[in-house]
Nucleic acid binder design. Structure first.
Lengths: 258, 258
DNA sequence: CGTCGACTTGACTAAAATCAAACCCGGTGG
DNA sequence: CCACCGGGTTTGATTTTAGTCAAGTCGACG
């Protein structure tokens, strides 16, 4: 599954419909019956290609559409007045983003492709309108917004950890779960983002991120080579998530419990 | 219970309707015409009293209702497996909370009254159902969910600040704005939460919070006595928000530097 | 007036930021 | 094929910052 060598056949299939999309169950269409899906299908601009570094929207832009990464990953970032940027989130295929404008009508952050990618684009106004007519879509839209809030929520949980290694472990854990959800191996994946971006996401210096990775490596919990990551001991990773004391506790308990 | 002296007249007025509520413009009814408001009115359990420390819901509870603080403040907290708690947010009168269950159908955090308070309670299922019939309510519901996400967003921004004093300044700034929005003076207010709770919100030790307040006090930016806060120099507070270098820059710009 | 809890302050310690230097690897061009 | 970039990454030494532990202080309330 390298970057798309887009044959005409592929192209045709790509534009087909949400119903045929491999991500459908993770995306907005989940739980919407095939009949109603047609309505949704009509409004989606499907699988538009986006080059690495391209911005889908900028802070201040009026709410136009929400997006689903269909191939490749994105980041959403806020740039503070002082110029430094914080990465609010990373968005893997099947994940919806761009909802940050729903509150005020204007985007608060900008969305950037981390690699050459594709997005599906849904004009928000039409989406909301159709949702008013299709209860199943409304339900799903609310759920998706909720899930998006849950992800922010997760980030808060990460950032509230004091120890750098906890944040990093939690970050890897989260990525692993999310990769697994989209049908890719959760134990081995390659990071679409740089150490610096991870740092800007976790509120850590990039060196600290690197050291964290190295530390987890030394401890035999993960294997890292550049952006390639393999999780060797998921349980231990989870333990790191709970802080080092918890880690100790686990080590102690190792004799007694499975 | 024994909160404010509730005369029969008050009681009658309190139960009246959303249309008459002083918070209506901040709350769900905003932008909904009077006719439709009746529909909403029917489902709201209005101004139920809640004692300090009471929980409106716990983590794991199924999504039943969303809440609006109508009097007094609340906090939402997540308790990690290791027992420590993090305060996700504080909720002032007119602010809606409890949406954290929309994504999964179960609450991820618990909501606790910080003081004797009152809440309006909206059964979520009915709300969603009525929203399907009233486009204006649907729009408003989406907007309110978006605003709630924006607040999470703000918290992320706070937590991503490295300097403790930046976090604290941003926190006070935010509170000030929010108090102003609900028609209370933004320059002088009293904190409904303890230093410890602020710490658990900002990811800081309570001592650090206290020191931060003291520092801002010394610098003549705020006045603090216990939970009473007055903002003396809003501009300087804003500067603190941007980090100490920005602060320095401002000091220099003041005309004359040592 | 004494007690208790919340808050402040101080001294010390642990952790991460910063500064600075190597290192590794994919790509380029000789 | 190999030398040589250059970005991203790792690692080391030092400094800064916030956490921790431990006294005190303040203030509300019985």
């Amino acid at each position: 599954m390298s970057t798309p060598s887009v044959s005409p056949i592929d192209l045709a299939r790509l534009r087909r419909s949400c119903a045929d999309c491999s991500l459908a169950q993770l995306c907005l269409p989940a739980g919407i019956d095939r009949g109603d899906l047609g309505r949704l299908d009509e409004l989606v601009k499907k699988r538009r290609p986006v080059a690495r570094g391209d911005r889908l929207y900028r802070a201040g832009d009026p709410l136009g559409a929400v997006f689903v990464a269909s191939e490749g990953s994105f980041k959403t970032v806020v740039v503070s007045e002082s110029g430094e940027e914080h990465v609010l989130g990373f968005h893997l295929p099947g994940e919806l983003f761009g909802l940050d404008a729903v509150g005020t009508g204007r985007h608060r952050c900008e969305a950037v492709a981390l690699e050459d990618a594709r997005v599906c684009e849904l004009p928000f106004a039409s989406l909301a309108q159709v949702a008013g007519q299709l209860p199943s879509l409304q339900r799903q839209l609310l759920r998706v917004m909720g899930q998006s809030a849950d992800r922010d929520h997760d980030l808060v949980e990460v950032l509230s950890r004091r120890q750098a290694c906890e944040r990093i472990a939690l970050f890897l854990q989260g990525l692993s779960d999310r990769y697994r959800r989209i049908g890719q191996p959760g134990e081995e994946f390659s990071l679409p983002m740089s150490r610096e971006e991870i740092g800007r996401h976790l509120g850590l210096a990039l060196e600290t991120v690197s050291r964290g990775f190295s530390r987890l490596h030394e401890d035999g919990i993960i294997e890292v080579r550049g952006r390639r990551v393999r999780i060797l001991d998921p349980q231990a990773l989870r333990a790191q998530t709970q802080g080092c004391e918890a880690d100790m506790a686990r080590a102690r308990a190792r004799g007694g419990r499975a």
